[in-house]
Amino acid sequence: MSFILDYYNYWIVVFLMMAGFYIVISANNLVKKIVGLNIFQTSVFMLYISMGKVTGGTAPIVAEGVTQYSNPLPHVLILTAIVVGVATTAVGLALVVRIKRAYGTVEENEFDNKDDVI
C-alpha cells in the first residue's frame, strides 16, 4: 500500500502528460493543438514541483518557528518554464490568426494537399 501512496502523484502527472501529448498529436484544430501543448507543459511543471515537496515542510519563505522547508530550486525552474510556455503560446496563436487569414481555415484536414501540419 505504501508503494502506491509514494508514487500515485507521479502516475497521475504521467497520465496528464500523455493526455496533453495525445491532444497535440490528434487535434484537428490548430487552437486545440495549442491547448494540448499547454496541458502537456503544465503537467511537466507538476512533475518538477511534486519532486520538490517535503511532507511536513512549508513554502520556502522564512517564517519563525518553521524548520522544514520544501526545496526552492524546482520552483525557480518552473517559474522560468511557465513564462517560456506562455511565450510559445502567444507566438503559436499569432501564427494561427495569420493562417486563418491566409488559408481561410484552421482545420488541419482542410489545408490543400501537401502543406498540412502534423
Binding site: 499547454n38 511543471f45 515537496k53 513564462v83
Partner: peptide
C-alpha cells in the same frame, strides 16, 4: 498545496 507559492501565483496570473 505542494508549497510552491510563487509558482501558483505565476501559473494563476500567467497561465
Amino acid at each position: 498545496n505542494l508549497d510552491a507559492v510563487d509558482v501558483a501565483f505565476t501559473e494563476a496570473s500567467v497561465g
